[in-house]
Amino acid sequence: MPRGHHDIGGTTRDAGPIDRTEHQLEDWEILADAVNQALGARGIKRTDELRRAREEMDSELYRSLSYYERWGASMENILIEKKILTREEVDRKVAEFEKKWGEP
């Protein structure tokens, strides 16, 4: 068993300087945070499950996504796992939004 991609304490790969730049959260990030917490408050998912979903992600994806992108991807996977929604529904909704917002 290789160590998980999230289990990075003491690893040399990430031994470089810490980027202390801070960014103002964008609306979608605040939304990702709030939807996640709302699901928790309703007892629909636990943080432990989302963590597990992040650990099960493709390792390259885990490394390349931003923090709230990881939250979103893990939330989607857990909601699909719980049969609350399907990948296709999310895809369709995205396509609908893109059309409405004037995107290809």
Binding site: E26, W28, E29, L31, A32, V35, A38, L39, R42, I44, L65, Y68, E69, G72, A73, M75, E76, L79, I84, L85, E89, V90, K93, V94, F97, E98
Partner: peptide, 19 residues
């Protein structure tokens, strides 16, 4: 791509009455 999916998930959860 992932940000759009957040909006989509939010909308679906509202439609389904989950939150």
């Amino acid at each position: 791509y992932h940000a759009k999916r957040i909006y989509a998930i939010r909308e679906l959860l509202l439609e389904k009455g989950v939150v």
